[in-house]
């Protein structure tokens, strides 16, 4: 590991150590924050007991589903919009504004329409993630070299064949940025919805644990979410960097 990497590790270790120390010394009330070591122990116990497994599977399943729908539908929509320049032009202000609007204000509307089930949560996950994928698809397709379109015409390929066999591979590195964003946005959308109101799921269990003053369970599950989200995001980030290196726009 590089020197910078070691320093980063040391900074994180010191931060966690300080938190542990402050909790142990009573500088931070244990009713507010429990020491990180106890969070880890509580998480391991919870995972071994299998009490929360159902909720864990449910939440991560919904995140996965929402991310999948966003990536597939986002790519399809992006490809269609890219083929229609006039539509794209008029959609530009919409895309520029989309993430400026806190779309969670529409979550209660979804609940009223679809009832308190998994559907509004999936929809919120898709709603937060899909536009990032559409924008990434548009950017990616913009960068497909003109000559490839000519190649397609020379080979008399149909629109679908051109999209799948030429444009998709050519735009792939850019599309992956969209996939990365879609996954992390789907995560945020699903967890936030579960927090606000949901029949089940990790967000719901954490907010229940908070209301019951069940700090151990709350911190254990929080730790789990943070670990999973960090690992997934870091993995996607590393893959994204690899792709970026390949297309020659990597950061030094």
């Amino acid at each position: 590991m590089s020197r910078v990497g070691w320093i980063r590790l040391a900074v994180l270790a010191i931060a966690i150590g300080l938190l542990e120390l402050c909790c142990r010394l009573g500088l931070i009330d244990q009713r507010v924050v429990i020491p990180p070591s106890e969070m880890a122990v509580a998480l391991v116990r919870l995972l071994i007991s299998g009490e929360a497994n159902e909720q864990i599977v449910r939440t991560f399943g919904i995140v996965l589903l929402a991310a999948l729908i966003s990536v597939v539908a986002g790519f399809a929509l992006g490809a269609v919009i890219h083929a229609l320049p006039r539509v794209r032009q008029s959609l530009d202000p919409f895309f520029a504004t989309y993430y400026a609007v806190p779309i969670f204000i529409f979550y209660p509307v979804m609940i009223v329409i679809f009832g308190l089930s998994a559907i509004p949560i999936v929809l919120m996950g898709v709603a937060t993630a899909i536009v990032a994928m559409i924008i990434a698809t548009l950017n990616g397709l913009d960068r497909v070299p003109q000559v490839l379109a000519k190649v397609a015409r020379v080979h008399r390929m149909g629109a679908i064949a051109t999209a799948l066999r030429l444009k998709l591979p050519a735009a792939a590195p850019h599309l992956f940025t969209g996939v990365k964003l879609a996954v992390s946005y789907a995560f945020i959308g699903v967890i936030a919805s579960e927090f606000i109101l949901a029949p089940a799921g990790l967000g719901r269990v954490i907010s229940d644990a908070y209301t019951d003053f069940n700090n151990r369970q709350m911190y254990a599950l929080m730790l789990l979410l943070i670990i999973v989200a960090t690992i997934v995001n870091m993995f996607l980030h590393v893959v994204d960097q690899r792709w970026a290196e390949r297309r020659g726009i990597a950061k030094p």
Partner: peptide, 29 residues
């Protein structure tokens, strides 16, 4: 530069974290 190189990945992973998860902690404090 050094603090930038050390801190950027930490900030990025915090940025992608669903921060709602931490709201109960804020409420407890």
């Amino acid at each position: 530069r050094l603090s930038g190189a050390v801190g950027e990945p930490i900030l990025i992973s915090l940025y992608t974290l669903p921060k709602v998860t931490l709201y109960p902690v804020v409420l407890l404090i």
